[in-house]
Design a protein around this nucleic acid. Structure first.
Lengths: 196, 196
DNA sequence: GCCGATAGTGAGTATTCACTCACTCACCAT
DNA sequence: ATGGTGAGTGAGTGAATACTCACTATCGGC
């Protein structure tokens, strides 16, 4: 695929249209699957969002599973980009400050829910081997990246991941919109950047 | 319903009473839904597990949604029971020791995966309002129970919940069966009681 | 023995959806 | 102009499945 686009590059003035379409479809899939999950989202919903016929989606992604996996992979890529951006706002010495900044960055990334929900849905669909493998791969990327980039202790990194998961629980249950004491306890210290 | 079963209690032969069947169905639902989630589990699977016709399952639980919710509720009940049992093994003064014991108890409860997976699936299906409400109710029960019973600080209770969520991630991705460094970092200190 | 009620089911129906296929169209090199 | 290639689609198909209904079986009480 990449070889193909490379060899084509000289003869074509325009970039390959199929790759552009793939992009559009992945972005549409990210949003569509985030809404209702792997099983409950028909690929017609993805196609409609991308403004493309369902048949062509299947030509580019032969199965719904591959389509979903592409969306999950994209989600992890976006998380890494966000963490890196946060890291750059902090001097490279202070591990805790960098972890904190990354936490902030992640909190605002998931403010629009789709990045968060894709992960929750992928976790739920992880009885499908390829999906579980993708989740494992994504987690590995993030953990090793955070550990190396911040140089924080194992405990701190583990805590970082654990509180990320807590964010997911808070959002899926909507408890941050609840005024009750127990809810404030759970959501304490979790930052919110309201979605625009 | 309970009045009825009381008056009927003396007599029985071939047919069982509806409450017994409800019980059997909820237990079957717990296992069946844990396998594949709300959307991907047909209620025929629940019926088959309970050894009952699908039509009768629908007579007792008018919609699949209600059936799933019953399973989720049962899951939270079982968690509470387990936490209480753990609490009783520890003297009532030491909040940290009690939280620790509860963590242990929870870890062995979710060793068989079904209690854990139901929660993950429920989280994923939480765009269904009634399911989200059930999750919120269950979380409320657990948080308020743990806080009151242990008397631990808000921070400690929040951490307890966060690391529970981390357990879910570890299990769904199977990373505890991985020898790699990053995986050990994430799973460090999480206890495992192997399923029998 | 029969009656009223409760337990229980076989055989549907209507719909949704993953995936397929035969086809058209736009473009470009010869 | 022509033929070849890749982008793109309309119209299916077959299987799965949530839910229904008309029906039978079993029971306790009289």
């Amino acid at each position: 695929m990449s070889i193909h686009s490379l060899t084509m590059k000289q003869t074509r003035t325009n970039l390959s249209d199929a790759d552009t379409r793939r992009e559009a479809i992945i972005e549409a899939a990210l949003l569509a699957f985030a809404d209702a999950g792997f099983q409950a989202t028909p690929v017609t919903a993805v196609a409609a969002r991308a403004g493309i016929s369902q048949a062509y989606v299947f030509k580019l992604f032969p199965t719904k599973e591959e389509l979903f996996i592409a969306a999950v992979e994209r989600c992890f890529t976006r998380i890494e980009e966000t963490l890196e951006k946060s890291a750059q706002t902090v001097s490279s010495g202070d591990a805790d400050a960098m972890l904190y900044a990354m936490g902030d960055g992640y909190a605002s990334l998931i403010a629009d829910r789709s990045i968060l929900m894709i992960q929750v849905h992928a976790q739920s669909a992880s009885d499908v081997p390829a999906i579980r493998a993708t989740m494992r791969g994504g987690l590995k990327r993030i953990v090793t990246y955070v550990k190396q980039r911040t140089g924080a202790s194992d405990e701190a990194v583990q805590r970082f991941i654990a509180f990320g998961q807590l964010c997911h629980l808070i959002t899926t249950t909507d408890i941050d919109e609840l005024g009750e004491d127990w809810a404030r306890l759970v959501a304490r210290g979790i930052r919110h950047v309201p979605a625009i």
